[in-house]
Every structure is written in structure tokens, then in C-alpha cells.
Deep mutational scan, measured.
Amino acid sequence: TEYKLVVVGAGGVGKSALTIQLIQNHFVDEYDPTIEDSYRKQVVIDGETCLLDILDTAGQEEYSAMRDQYMRTGEGFLCVFAINNTKSFEDIHQYREQIKRVKDSDDVPMVLVGNKCDLAARTVESRQAQDLARSYGIPYIETSAKTRQGVEDAFYTLVREIRQH
């Protein structure tokens, strides 16, 4: 089974770092803004072998026109913010609204991801993020692309959301 996953969120929150940590098991430290990259990885989730087709997208506003296209083809979405960047957390709402509009559905598989949880300088409390996820009816997972904490959990949870859909 193949799953088309799309990673969305503001610029600099760590979308590529999360994806590369999942696929290649290493942490990319330097920031190089993405336009669009796709990665494929075969994994076993709950005993089922599946192929993850992951689209890593641009957070930069100037590429926002490309969003409709990949939102149409994606089956599930990782909505990523950084726990030390309140603005990126506030941006999640717009991504969710755009996904709902493009998919013409209120019920699209999504996982809210709070990345950079290895950093002490948190400005978005776990509780705020949990409340937001609960209001959307989606899971919330904290990750660190640096330490790998929660990385597999985030992507695998999204696959489970798609399966249950």
C-alpha cells in the first residue's frame, strides 16, 4: 500500500529536517529553504509493509500558489509548527483551512506536530497545542528532528489516521 503524505507549515519550522531524519536517519543542521522535494521510503507499520511517498513543501509565502496542487494529491498532512515560534503555531489554522477548502472536506487525515521540542526556549505550551488538536479532532505529537524523538511516531500516526479514514 502506498501513502501520499504531505508536510506543511511555516518556513523554518523543520519540515525538511523531520523528513530527512525519518528517511535518512540524520539531522540536517543548516537551513536551506525548500521549494519542493519528495522522498520515498518502505516501512512496516503495524505489520503492514507500506511505501511512504512524502512531499516536503515550501513554507515560504512566495510558493503558496503551489499549495493547491499538492493538497489535492496528498492523502494525509503533517501540519508542523516549531514550539519556539508562536507565529508558526498561529499559521497552522490557515494551512488547515486551505487543506479543507482544496479537499472540499472537513475530515482530512492530519496530525499536528510541534517540532524542536529539544529546545528550552518554548513559547507554545503543550497544552495550547493539545487544545488546538482536540478542537480539530486530530492527534498532537511533539518531535525533535535533532534527537529523533517522536519522528517515526508522527509519520506513522498519520498513516494510521489515513487507514482509519
Rank of each mutant, 00 (worst) to 15 (best):
E36Q: 02
E48C: 00
P33I: 03
G150C: 10
T57V: 07
E61D: 14
E125H: 07
Y136H: 09
A154M: 14
E142R: 03
L158R: 01
D104M: 10
V124G: 10
D118R: 01
Y31L: 09
I45E: 04
L51V: 14
S88K: 05
E62T: 15
L78Y: 04
G137I: 04
G47Q: 10
Q98G: 10
R67K: 14
T143I: 15
T19W: 01
E48I: 05
M66P: 13
V44S: 10
V43R: 13
E30A: 04
A129P: 05
A133W: 04
I99P: 02
E125A: 09
R148G: 13
L5F: 12
L52E: 00
M110N: 01
F77L: 04
I23P: 01
V28H: 05
L112Y: 05
Q164F: 04
Y156H: 11
G14L: 01
R127H: 07
V7P: 01
T86Q: 13
E2D: 06
T49A: 09
A120S: 09
E90V: 09
G14H: 00
D131S: 08
Y63W: 11
T73C: 13
L5D: 00
T143W: 00
L119C: 13
Y156M: 14
A82W: 04
C50A: 07
T57H: 04
Y3P: 06
L132F: 13
E161K: 14
I35M: 05
D107T: 12
G150H: 07
L22P: 01
T123Q: 10
I83S: 13
R160W: 06
D68I: 04
I92Y: 06
V159M: 15
L55F: 03
E161M: 14
S88T: 10
D68H: 07
S16H: 00
R134N: 11
A17V: 08
D56G: 01
E152K: 13
L5P: 01
Y63D: 09
V151C: 07
G47R: 06
V102Q: 11
L52R: 01
Q24L: 06
Q60P: 14
R148F: 14
P109Y: 05
G12E: 15
N25D: 10
G11Y: 09
T147W: 08
Y70W: 06
G47D: 08
R134L: 07
L158D: 00
V113G: 02
V44M: 11
G47F: 06
V28D: 13
L112A: 04
T34L: 00
R67I: 15
V151R: 03
K87R: 12
V151W: 08
E90T: 10
E61C: 14
F155P: 01
A17D: 00
T157Q: 14
L51Q: 12
D91F: 14
L158P: 01
Y3G: 02
Q69P: 10
Y39F: 07
G47V: 06
D37V: 00
V43K: 13
E61N: 15
T73R: 09
N25C: 05
A58L: 02
D68M: 07
D118F: 00
T143L: 15
R67C: 14
